[in-house]
Design a protein around this nucleic acid. Sequence first.
DNA 1: AATGTGACATACC
DNA 2: TGGTATGCCACAT
Length: 115
Amino acid sequence: MKKKTDKYSFFENVYEVVKLIPKGRATSYGAIAKYLGAARSARMVGYALNSCFAHADKIPAHRVVNRNGMLTGKHHFPDEYPMDEALRKEGIKVKDDKIVDFKAVFWDPSIELSL
DNA sequence: AATGTGACATACC
DNA sequence: TGGTATGCCACAT
């Protein structure tokens, strides 16, 4: 329900999409940005996730990686819960901070959510 | 309003 | 493979 603002922040949108990512899947910043209608705001997606820890809800930010499937954001995760470990627990294989067979687990919101 | 920022994407070397 | 440079855009200050 909307109050004063008709639209939520771009961040809120990012959080919503990330939370919709199925277990064992992963997507890219660019894909999310595109789905939100701002394909050139991939940086904003990462920016948003940077604040995800401050966000009230739990954001599976570990399911969001860059275009190469590389865990570029792992350095931003808490040491107690590394990004690659989180992914492994969901069945995603990670090697050298990169998702193995990324395209196999790739989850594109602009496709999956439009079915 | 202006400036700084960045977990990207792409290009180039 | 990795460093540098540029474009890009929404948010923070």
